[in-house]
Computed example of a mutant assay.
Amino acid sequence: MSTIYKSEAGASEIQRRYQEVLRTWPVPAEHVRVPTREGETFVLVSGPIDAPPLLLLHGSGANTAAWRDDITSWSRHFRTYALDLIGEPGLSAPSRPPLASDAHALWLDDVLEGLGITSASIVGMSLGGWLALDYATRRPERVTRLALLCPGGLGRQKMGWLVTALLLHPFGRRGVRRSVGAITGLDTPQARPILDQVALTFTHFKPRTERLPLFSDDALHRLTMPVLVTVGGRDAMFDSEGTTRRVRQCVPHATVNLLPEVGHAILGQADSVLAFLRG
């Protein structure tokens, strides 16, 4: 695991905090470990065993804790499978195969097979949104509904946030916190606990530096399932207007929600996503 962390001590601190979250999960959950070609994948499973399956894919620098505020609502109606993405600060393998390949789709094939799932709805956030899109364009028959929050791969990926992060990095934890606040848009009193957790993670974690590949128009035309895309008008990482424009052009049946005053981190969407999933 040290390959994705700056130190063993930092890795231990992040894992300790994560275990605390798992111990206080708001609904009953099973901890499942699925063997895959990329190594073991940790899955947090909640909800009625006979309910429709819902796959949850978090963003970069995160883990299943990203869904803590949503899981109570969603798990009433779905069998939820929250994955720790490989190569991220959760309990899955640190493997990071190239994004510009079919490696992640093959990894998700393995996960679904290990869970006994033939098709599912997917909710993906940021990097998880990119992975959900990648899978849905390659395996459209396996995705029943697709809900994307601030997804990558549609609009231009901005790099100004990287300059901000580099300028503030020499200021230690305080600098990391300021840069994370600027990038996510979470620098408000209400979001301070979440911001503190993200800042702690990026103090010790080495994020991916690989640019997310853009999906072609032809690939997006393969999205025949119902699609919901929610983006923030002040997203510092992705061009939300470009994302909105491409979705409306290439996936005309999709529902697009542009939240003008929201940054990259989109919170409080449990009800709107649930309404779409139950459509």
Rank of each mutant, 00 (worst) to 15 (best):
R79D: 00
N63G: 13
S95R: 12
D84T: 07
L55S: 03
P89S: 11
T41G: 06
A105C: 13
T144R: 13
E261I: 04
A100S: 15
W161T: 05
M1Q: 08
P193A: 09
P170V: 01
G90F: 01
A105N: 09
R248Q: 15
F205N: 04
Q19T: 09
T244V: 15
A265S: 07
T64A: 15
R139T: 11
A93D: 06
V247A: 06
L83H: 05
L166P: 00
H253R: 13
G59D: 10
A105Y: 01
P26I: 11
I14F: 00
G114V: 10
T255K: 14
S240H: 10
V111I: 10
G172N: 01
R248W: 08
A120V: 04
R23P: 02
R208M: 11
E30T: 06
K206H: 12
E88S: 14
Q15E: 14
A199D: 10
G172Q: 02
S75G: 05
R37T: 08
N63I: 03
H58E: 09
H264F: 01
N257C: 12
H31K: 15
G172C: 05
R208W: 05
N63W: 08
G155I: 09
E40I: 13
G129Y: 03
T243Y: 04
T41F: 05
L146A: 04
E261L: 10
G181L: 06
S7D: 06
I14R: 08
S121R: 00
M237C: 10
Y135K: 02
L212E: 02
W74C: 10
V45H: 08
H169P: 00
L56R: 06
G242M: 13
H104R: 13
V21I: 13
G90Q: 07
E40G: 09
A270T: 06
E88H: 12
T201Y: 04
Q19C: 04
W74S: 09
D271H: 09
S240D: 08
L127C: 04
G185Y: 10
V198F: 15
L146F: 03
I71K: 08
G87H: 06
L168A: 13
G268W: 04
P151E: 11
D196A: 14
P151S: 12
L99G: 01
T188G: 09
G175V: 02
G233W: 08
T3L: 14
E261R: 12
A93T: 07
L44E: 02
D50P: 02
L127N: 04
F42W: 07
V43G: 12
T230P: 01
W74D: 02
A265Q: 05
G114W: 11
R37L: 06
L22Y: 03
S46N: 07
A136T: 03
P140Q: 13
F205C: 07
Q249H: 11
H58M: 08
E20R: 15
V262N: 03
L44M: 06
A120E: 00
G59M: 14
L154H: 05
D69T: 12
